[in-house]
């Protein structure tokens, strides 16, 4: 450990603002892109299911029309 206390660690030898800002923005950006990818994945799968259900509904409506 290079620092004597936790407060020292947070203080970063006077460069706290720059160091923590950099690390915050970096991991923030990484989290954003990862989460965005996962959210999109869920949305895409939902869209696939919705599309399939819609196609099935159309097919069923067509069948009903034929019968009547």
């Amino acid at each position: 450990m290079q620092f004597d206390s936790f407060a020292d660690f947070i203080h970063m030898g006077g460069y706290a603002f720059y160091v923590w800002l950099s690390f915050g923005v970096t991991f923030g950006a990484m989290c954003i892109i990862a989460i965005q990818s996962y959210v999109k994945h869920k949305a895409l799968l939902n869209a696939v299911i919705a599309d399939k259900a819609r196609k099935a509904r159309i097919e069923r409506a067509r069948q009903n029309e034929k019968r009547s």
């Binding site: 450990m1 290079q2 620092f3 660690f9 970063m12 030898g13 006077g14 460069y15 720059y18 160091v19 950099s22 690390f23």
Partner: peptide, 15 residues
């Protein structure tokens, strides 16, 4: 936390 300080740039080098 554990890497030594840079003798010129202090802790800012941790970026």
């Amino acid at each position: 936390a554990f890497a030594p300080q840079d003798y010129q740039q202090g802790d800012s080098f941790r970026i």
